[in-house]
Structures are given as structure tokens and as C-alpha cells.
């Protein structure tokens, strides 16, 4: 949010000099790029883009920015239920909340778990999504329709319901999966609890997250694939490139912007996963199931240290920004090339 604030603040400064030189062919209406460079004075007033941006920025600043500032302030104070209910600001504690969290070993294991969880979920989502997208290009029409219906229907299943169904499927006493697996000769999973071992339990949760995320990725990638020029692939194949080479050197480069966008969004979404972990563990994740969001929630609503919860949230955003720094540059390049 701070970035938006500073840019708003800088806007008036930008007004006097529309800077015709350094940004060729961007602003002028209907100028063919390249050719339009410097043709005539700009008719766009400097406030025009800001006018267009105003509603979006207003909503974001109000409903997200303002609470965010509040969150930030709380993270520097002593803030519990008493302060909340009596409308007190709370005592200023400086960085105490942060030092408390950052020196807590439990916090770092939560960070590590969250990163591994995200890595696993994003990698799987992207791989499966890509595989499905590639498959969709190669299957008969009726299979394609079927797969699309499955994708679409799973996407539209409310998370709450998906969680209930998964929990039920994996139940140790009356879950259908243990029963199914036990039909396989040599496998006896009757009464097996998938959540005893947190690695296994987290794997189930990753599966749930991936299951929910694949449709969006697969559908998008499939659409992207249909736009990879067949001539290019054909040519590469004629040059003797195998399918793997064609994929690596022709398909992936063309799809790169889509892949970057999907990966970025997936990282953000998977790191922000909350109900999947929270509800799969009946609203009280054990210590070995905590990820950053549930940990922050616990601090805020279980221990009623809203300050610590806020500080964890702020750290989460900083972590995400760190993780995304690389991608951010890639994302920015989209649309900058012309």
C-alpha cells in the first residue's frame, strides 16, 4: 500500500512535465507504436490516468489500505481484547512484538513449513496443470468435454464443502479412501489415520489445495497452448527436435508470460491458504500443522494477542514480497515491451 501512497503523492510533481521523450508511444491515443513517436503534442492531461485509476485505488486504499495501516500500528502496540472492546489505542511497544516473534524458534519452523508447503503446492499445481493442458490438446473431443466439466465443477465447489468432502474421504473410521485402498491386494489401510503423521497430513492438505488450484491453471494454460503457433512447432519437429525439445524451446518460451503470471498468483494464494489447514484440523491445527496464516490467526484469536497476530501478518507480507521480488520484475515486463 505504501507504494501506492507514494505514487499518489508524486502525481502532482509529474504534471508539469509530460516527458515526451522517455516513454515513446505509450500514452498518445491511437498512435501506432514506433511510428507514433513524438508526433504532435499529447492531448492527455496528466490527471487522466489518475482519474481512471481513482475508483480502484479508492476502494483498495479504503477497504484494504486503511485497515492495513491500522494493522501496522497495532503490530507496534500492546493490543488485546481489553483495548479492542474499550476502544483504547494500546501502549506503544516499539519493536517488541517483532523481536518476540523473530526470536521464537516456533515461528521459524512455521515459516519453513509454510515455504515448503507453498513450494510443494505451487510445483504440483503448475506441473499437473501443465500436464492436463498438454493432454487436452491431444485427446478426443468427448474426453476434452468431460475433463473440462470436471475442472470447472471442482473450481466452483465452495472451499468449505471441498474441505468437508476431503476430510470425510480421508476419515479413518468411515472414509471411502481407506476402504478403496484396502481393496488393493496387499494394502491394508483400514483404520489408518492420515493425520497422525503431520507430513502425511500436510500432504493430504497440499493435495486438497492443488486439487482446487489445478482447474484455473489448466484451463488458462490450455488456452495459452492453443495460441502457440503450430508452424513453429512443426518447423522444430522437421528440424528433428523431439517432443521434449519442442516443448522446452518452442512452447515454454511462448507461454512464459502466462506461466509467470500463474506462478506468481499461485505463490500468493498458496502462501495465504487458510481454511484448508484450519478446517481440516477442526479449527485447531496442532503445532506441527501451523502455517503462517493459521499461526497469525491463533495469535490474534486464540491467544487474543492481536498485536502479535498483526506482526506475523506484516512479516508474512514482507516474506512474500521477498519471494516475489524476482517474479515482480518479470511481471512488470508484460506490456512494457512495445
Amino acid at each position: 500500500m505504501s507504494a501506492a501512497d507514494t505514487s499518489i503523492a508524486r502525481a502532482p510533481a509529474g504534471r508539469p512535465s509530460p516527458a515526451p521523450g522517455p516513454d515513446p508511444g505509450k500514452a498518445p491515443p491511437g498512435k501506432p507504436h514506433g511510428g507514433g513517436r513524438g508526433r504532435g503534442p499529447r492531448r492527455d492531461p496528466a490527471w487522466a490516468p489518475w482519474l481512471l485509476l481513482a475508483p480502484t485505488l479508492l476502494v483498495l486504499a479504503l477497504v484494504l489500505g486503511y485497515p492495513l495501516v491500522r494493522l501496522l500500528v497495532i503490530s507496534f502496540r500492546q493490543y488485546g481484547q481489553a483495548e479492542l472492546w474499550q476502544g483504547l489505542p494500546g501502549d506503544w511497544q516499539g519493536l517488541a512484538n517483532y523481536t518476540h516473534i523473530l526470536t521464537d524458534g516456533a515461528f521459524w519452523s512455521v515459516v519453513l513449513r509454510t515455504l515448503l508447503f507453498t513450494l510443494a503446492a505451487v510445483t504440483l499445481t503448475m506441473t499437473v496443470g501443465m500436464a492436463v493442458a498438454l493432454l487436452l490438446q491431444r485427446v478426443s473431443t468427448w474426453v476434452k468435454v468431460l475433463v473440462n466439466i470436471v475442472l470447472v465443477a471442482s473450481w466452483s465447489m465452495p472451499v468449505v464443502v471441498a474441505i468437508t468432502v476431503f476430510k470425510w474421504m480421508f476419515d479413518s473410521d468411515y472414509g471411502v479412501l481407506n476402504w478403496l485402498f484396502s481393496r488393493i491386494p496387499g494394502v491394508d489401510l483400514e483404520g489408518h489415520n492420515w493425520f497422525t503423521d503431520s507430513t502425511q497430513g500436510l500432504a493430504v492438505i497440499v493435495l486438497l489445495v492443488v486439487w482446487g488450484a489445478v482447474p484455473f491453471v489448466a484451463i488458462t494454460l490450455h488456452a495459452g497452448l492453443t495460441q502457440v503457433p503450430k508452424e513453429l512447432e512443426e518447423a522444430a519437429r522437421l528440424d528433428g527436435a523431439g517432443p521434449v525439445k519442442v516443448f522446452r524451446h518452442v512452447t515454454v518460451p511462448v507461454l512464459k508470460p502466462v506461466i509467470v503470471m500463474l506462478t506468481t498468483l499461485s505463490v500468493i494464494w498458496d502462501m495465504g491458504v487458510f481454511p484448508q489447514v484450519f478446517l481440516m484440523r477442526d479449527g485447531h491445527p496442532e503445532p506441527e500443522y501451523q502455517v503462517l496464516t493459521t499461526y497469525s490467526y491463533d495469535q490474534a484469536f486464540v491467544v487474543n494477542d492481536y498485536d502479535a497476530g498483526a506482526a506475523i501478518a506484516v512479516v508474512t507480507v514482507l516474506l512474500l514480497l521477498g519471494v516475489m521480488a524476482v517474479y515482480m520484475r518479470q511481471m512488470l515486463k508484460i506490456g512494457e515491451v512495445e
Partner: peptide, 21 residues
């Protein structure tokens, strides 16, 4: 316009705030 990149980045960054918090 000046601040364009900042706006783009900010719009992405606000998605990162965990809503639970």
C-alpha cells in the same frame, strides 16, 4: 505517467496481505 510502475506493484502487493489477519 509517473508512478505507473508503483501502482502496478502496489496492486499486486495488496493481494499478499493475509485476509485472516
Amino acid at each position: 505517467f509517473r508512478g505507473r510502475r508503483a501502482v502496478i506493484v502496489a496492486v499486486l502487493a495488496v493481494q499478499m496481505v493475509p485476509l485472516v489477519a
